[in-house]
């Protein structure tokens, strides 16, 4: 966050309380996944490993910021009746850029993420922020809003991915930590302290993502009771 503040100052734009709120609100009080319930679609399937989750998070941050800035800078020229299509085309173009970049520089991740890169287009976070924020605000604030929401999404993604990868496979970012073979950092079959440890294979399967997010939501709402669903 400190980096952002420096960059903004160079452009001669203020970074005060209001701007900070734009950045920090989506991290907790207004988190896109746990509170706004946006962008779950493309998120859960990529959380089996932290590396994929990180790539996905960076891609979404990128698309969020630039879609917000572009839409915000042409917001006065977009006719209201076709705004959805205009927004979708902007997002689709940015996602195509992301796809081609990944294909060129991170082919391994590109193959593993497969269709889920394309699904950033219909990631409701991007679309939702365009509708709710960028259509009514200046490009600078929109960029901050995009950054904040992208990071808020990325954090949840990384938490879920950490739980699933560590407890499911005993790895973090592909580095072998806990396991029963000698190439793991802590060999559970020999070490007497960790001998009881068994990886939980359920974590690798898809329903576990749902459970992990449900627990995150539960904890988040127990911590901040004002978010509790009244209905």
């Amino acid at each position: 966050m400190a980096d952002t503040a420096v960059v903004e100052k160079k452009q001669g734009l203020t970074f005060g309380k209001k701007e900070r709120k734009l950045l920090t609100d989506p991290l907790s009080e207004n988190n896109p996944i746990t509170v706004q319930v946006l962008g779950i679609c493309s998120a859960l399937a990529v959380t089996t490993g932290m590396k994929n989750a990180l790539v996905m998070a960076i891609a979404v941050v990128f698309v969020c910021i630039f879609a917000n800035v572009i839409t915000s800078s042409i917001r006065k020229m977009i006719p209201k009746s076709v705004r959805m299509i205009v927004q979708l085309i902007i997002i689709a173009t940015l996602v195509t850029v992301v796809e081609l970049v990944l294909k060129a520089y991170a082919f391994e991740s590109y193959k593993q993420l497969s269709v889920f890169i394309g699904l950033i287009i219909t990631n409701c976070i991007v679309m939702g922020r365009l509708e709710a924020f960028a259509m009514a605000n200046r490009p600078y604030e929109s960029a901050l809003d995009g950054l904040g929401n992208g990071i808020g999404y990325g954090i949840i993604l990384l938490i879920v991915a950490f739980v699933r990868e560590f407890f499911g496979k005993g790895e973090i970012f592909g580095a072998k930590i806990l396991g029963a073979t000698p190439d793991y950092w802590l060999n559970t079959s020999e070490s007497s302290i960790m001998g009881w440890y068994q990886p939980n294979n359920l974590m690798v399967l898809f329903p576990s993502a749902m459970f992990v997010i449900a627990v995150i939501i539960w904890a988040h709402r127990a911590w901040k009771p004002q978010l509790v669903d009244v209905s």
């Binding site: 746990t34 329903p207 993502a209 749902m210 459970f211 939501i217 539960w218 904890a219 709402r221």
Partner: peptide, 23 residues
């Protein structure tokens, strides 16, 4: 249902269970 789990949280848990059933 515990208050903090009401609504969204419960929906996630249920979806996970349904996912397991569909497996």
């Amino acid at each position: 249902v515990p208050p903090a789990l009401r609504g969204l949280g419960m929906a996630f848990l249920l979806t996970g269970l349904m996912g397991m059933a569909f497996m």
